[in-house]
């Protein structure tokens, strides 16, 4: 089948328009999201974010004291596994081309965060996990909403737009839980 420019549903103007709409809904510009417009940066950060979430949640299932923290950790495993799969599928589509590949390891900063979770005194685990979760999800929300609004690849924008509301709910949930457990 011929792969002409127009056969791809070309639609540059349509893409611009859709971007405007998504941007209006999700638009939340922070310094962090400005670097998130390239597919390469987005894929790397999204994949690493999911890997960190899965690893941290496994530690929480083993070490958390509060059953509510364990519940939320299980939820993180379920949801970030789904997000990992969605990203993996997207990367197998022609729409993402072969511009970048998925990382297989977390970066230095997340490695340190995970190390801290492994080393923290037993009675401080829950607090550290929730502190990290709030921080990590703020970053993920910025990454997803930023890329959904201004990313350079339509398929990855779609990935970001489909994950953004979910991680936004995660963030609210983590903030609430941290408050309630501190009280």
């Amino acid at each position: 089948m011929a792969e002409g420019e127009k056969e791809r549903g070309g639609a540059t103007r349509l893409a611009e328009k859709a971007r405007g709409v998504v941007g209006a809904v999700l638009g939340r510009v922070t310094a962090n999201t400005l670097g998130a417009q390239s597919a390469k940066t987005f894929v790397k950060n999204a994949a690493i974010g999911d890997m960190y979430e899965l690893e941290a949640a496994k530690l929480a299932l083993a070490n958390a004291h509060s059953p509510r923290v364990k519940d939320v950790a299980q939820q993180m495993i379920d949801d970030h596994t789904t997000l990992t799969h969605q990203l993996r599928s997207a990367m197998r589509m022609n729409e993402t081309g072969d511009q970048t590949s998925l990382p297989t390891e977390v970066d230095e900063r997340r490695k340190q965060m995970l190390d801290e979770l492994r080393r923290v005194p037993d009675d401080e685990f829950d607090k550290l996990y929730l502190d990290q979760q709030v921080l990590a999800h703020k970053e993920t929300v910025d990454l997803m909403t930023g890329y959904a609004a201004r990313g350079d690849n339509p398929q990855l924008r779609s990935v970001a737009a489909s994950g953004a509301p979910l991680v936004t709910r995660h963030l609210r949930h983590m903030e609430r839980l941290r408050e309630e457990l501190a009280a």
């Binding site: 089948m1 792969e3 056969e7 791809r8 549903g9 639609a11 349509l14 893409a15 859709a18 789904t82 969605q86 599928s89 997207a90 589509m93 022609n94 729409e95 690849n153 339509p154 398929q155 924008r157 779609s158 990935v159 489909s162």
Partner: peptide
């Protein structure tokens, strides 16, 4: 049911035949 949900194509970037 979650294992029946796939990744969507986009109208902007999909081959029109795919739509």
């Amino acid at each position: 049911p979650h294992d029946d949900l796939r990744r969507p194509m986009t109208v902007q970037a999909a081959h029109f035949q795919s739509i």
